[in-house]
Amino acid sequence: MFGFHYRLERKAIGLVVGIILVASIGGIVEIAPLFTIHQTVEDAPDMRVYTPLEIAGRNIYMREGCYACHSQMIRTLRDEVERYGPYSLAVESKYDHPMLWGSKRTGPDLARVGGKYSDEWQVAHLVDPRSVVPESIMPAYDWLSRNRLKTDNLGEDLKALRTVGVPYSEDMIANASSDAHGQAAPDSKEAESVVTRYGKETSVRPFDGKPEELTEMDALVAYLQILGRLTDAAKKPVATAER
Rank of each mutant, 00 (worst) to 15 (best):
C69S: 09
I226E: 11
R130L: 05
Q72S: 14
K210Q: 14
T202Y: 03
W121E: 05
Y117D: 01
A241P: 01
G107C: 07
L34S: 10
E201N: 11
R105M: 12
T202Q: 06
P139Q: 09
V133Q: 14
L89N: 07
D218A: 09
P211W: 09
P129E: 13
L8I: 14
H181A: 03
N153H: 04
R63H: 07
A239Q: 11
M99E: 11
L224T: 02
M73D: 10
L77H: 10
T151R: 03
Y84D: 10
T151K: 00
V29I: 15
W101C: 01
A68E: 11
E216Y: 08
L126A: 13
R146L: 06
L149P: 02
Y50N: 02
T76N: 15
R146V: 04
H70F: 09
N153T: 02
R112T: 15
D208A: 08
R243W: 09
L15Y: 07
E216H: 06
V133G: 00
G14N: 08
R75V: 12
M1S: 12
Y95C: 04
E82W: 02
L227D: 00
E9Q: 14
H38G: 08
S88D: 04
A234V: 08
S118L: 09
S193I: 00
K159R: 14
D46Q: 04
M172I: 05
S178F: 04
R112L: 15
E42N: 09
K200Q: 13
D128Y: 10
G102A: 12
L144A: 09
I74S: 08
P108W: 06
I20C: 10
T40Y: 02
S169Q: 05
S24V: 08
E190A: 12
S193A: 15
K11P: 00
V41S: 06
T202C: 02
T76R: 12
N59H: 06
P108Q: 11
I226F: 02
W101L: 08
I28D: 05
A241C: 08
L214M: 11
Y67N: 10
T36Q: 11
L100Y: 05
Y61C: 01
R75Q: 11
E64F: 08
G228C: 03
R58Q: 09
V132H: 04
L144M: 13
S131H: 11
P45I: 08
E192R: 12
G85H: 09
F207T: 04
F2A: 06
